[in-house]
Design a protein around this nucleic acid. Structure first.
Lengths: 219, 219, 219, 219
DNA sequence: AATGAATGAGCCTTCATTCAT
DNA sequence: GATGAATGAAGGCTCATTCAT
């Protein structure tokens, strides 16, 4: 790995970054296979051989892209939504969902992550599976803990899993709204729309969870 | 390398059908771009040139596949869930969701549709968008009518759209459950799992909708 | 594999043959790695994609080339030198060597084999080793039987192996002569030169073997 | 992908030497074309640009390698085998062959030369031919003088050339033995095996030469 | 209706070399 | 003397498509 320098003359790190960012765009627009090294380099105004130089090969670049997007997103949209860990669970849940939806709806650089998620869930690339699993870990864990708290002590593992998939499923549809069932990934959501969606999901889900908890406790 | 093959003259329609079915499998497993004409023909034990002969080109074949899958699914899993149109709305809603989830969870030939949906929603192929829109029309319409009824006369278009995306999002996660966030599209759900999921979504959603309706009516 | 046809219009077999022959030339001139698919096709006046179509890939084409060369050589230069199997062993030995040397010195198409041999023995391609072993089998066996007979009943396996390597080594130098230690593989040997070389090797070797046998029998 | 490396300033000559030695290994293992500048530098733990700096280009490095190997070999295995120049010719011949075979069979650093020889004789690199010729000169000359003496005053140039190629051919097969016709260049010969081979070649060849001389003198 | 053969564009990667520092 | 970065050419291969039968 090239040593980080501050020289302005020829800075490998800068090129690498440019390449990585171009790759984020192209991979998230077209998916692993459809994305071509050629286009990535064209966008980064770099020589195709630099991919191999800086990242090894296309697959490793893809991995770097995932890592980059997830980590960047985690900084801007922290898992706990930036809320006091001692706040009531509903508050923490709302903060979490809010953040998650805003992340998915992000129109800027972070929008890549949303697309990567959808793409991967549709046609998983075998070589990246574990990496993604690992990257998602903190998020998954946080959500499950919240759900456990909300569903109460009698909830089984399966209850939680069902609930989790339901929540994730709703968030994944961010940008779908508007009557179209295929999410329109290109036009961004306005802040208002985003907020409306987040509110909706929170209310909707909390209601669902409460109903579920009743059933659980009556079992 | 040309494969030696026992040349059996089949009648045209049969070959076309075989090709179409092979294409359903391959497209739904790999997506439009990753699927190769070569593999489709290999599975159908047919000559590559026949694709162009029968369907024009790869894209048109893809369209035919969508049409085939949607229509076939509609026959087995009717939009209204096979329930009396005069039944109470909750019953009709449950029937609809039940059918939709069972369709998504179908382990047989119909499983193609689920995958096509996911794939297409992740990276929409520009040339097929309208076709899909049109194919989904009856389903969308039916669901929206149900939601309208459930949400009451004060619900706006946007309320309905939000609700719709929420419902669809949950159903799309069929097969995800099991703690994994990337739906495992290969292992089928058991009938029990399917039922549990459908029940969960119905209860969950109905609770969410009821809460929503309250808010709407108080506006 | 394409079915053999007799039509003159478009005959895959003919093209395949042209490709194979061009490959024989290029591979034997440059070795596996240095030879490029591009050049082979240029010589065969064929499209580069046809290599993959007819043979699979470069490595398989290389294998086909070996097979082709060995088999073709075996026809023209039979292992037993075309001599009565009941002839005295010296006669059979001379016939064998004669044929072998003439084969190595062959200026025509068969010259490929000589070069392939040298090339492979210098930098063996891992994927072809067994194939070559198998192809050489009949030759090796024949030579060893002759040597066994010549060295008498007391010769050990190792004696025979030593002798074999000595014989092969000499034949491999065909075309070297002329004071140059690196065999000049391009300029062919005249029939006279070839004959002189073969005679030399036979006399030389027979003398060596007789001396060896004496030592063996005295052990 | 750039490798992180602890930058140690070495003095130029040392680096050049390290590069040369790494190049000996790689070239002799893979041949000129298959050897990559990259691997050589990786082994020498040096920067690829240094090749061009110290040697000009790949071809010149290859030349340097040949020179290095030949000269080094000559020191350890002197042409005359370290024997009194007044000793009987058979003794000097035996010493020469002995040394030559031991050189070819050398398992250590000198083994490079053997491989370079085989490689180059199989696919001669046009730009190096003369250099090699020149480097081999002393050896060739010595052997020819010995053969001349052994074959007697009536031997023609061609007789000697034939004999020479025969001798060289046998020695080149060092490591072949063991029933395999493609010399196994990786596993080294034990001292015993080496001695057995050298003895065999000497006895075998002397017998052959004697027979040849008879024929020559009877012409 | 069906086939084998052929095509050309494009993709990913490797590699020797150069250049500025 | 040594380095990291960059370059461009070339190579092997895949693939959708077309063509003549």
């Amino acid at each position: 790995m090239p040593t980080s320098r501050t020289t302005t003359r020829r800075d490998g790190e800068a090129t690498k970054q440019k390449l990585l960012e171009a790759a984020c765009c192209v991979f998230s627009e077209k998916g692993f296979r459809d994305a071509t090294v050629g286009e990535i380099c064209r966008r980064a105004e770099a020589n195709p051989a630099l991919i191999s130089y800086h990242f090894g090969d296309k697959a490793s670049l893809y991995e770097a892209v995932w890592r980059h997007c997830v980590l960047q997103a985690r900084q801007v949209y922290p898992v706990d939504g930036g809320v006091d860990p001692d706040a009531p669970v509903e508050v923490r849940f709302r903060a979490h969902i809010d953040t998650f939806v805003r992340c998915m709806a992000d129109a800027g650089e972070l929008s890549h992550l949303h697309r990567l998620n959808l793409l991967e869930s549709a046609s998983p690339n075998p070589f990246i599976g574990e990496v993604i699993q690992e990257l998602r870990q903190p998020h998954t864990e946080h959500l499950c803990l919240l759900l456990k708290e909300l569903l109460g002590p009698n909830a089984t593992e399966q209850d939680i899993a069902l609930c989790e998939s339901t929540v994730i499923g709703q968030c994944r549809m961010a940008r779908a709204g508007r009557g179209r069932r295929t999410p329109d990934l290109t036009t961004p959501l306005s802040p208002d729309e985003t907020q409306a969606l987040a509110d909706h999901i929170v209310e909707f889900t909390l209601a669902g969870i409460r109903a579920m908890r009743q059933r659980i406790d009556q079992r």
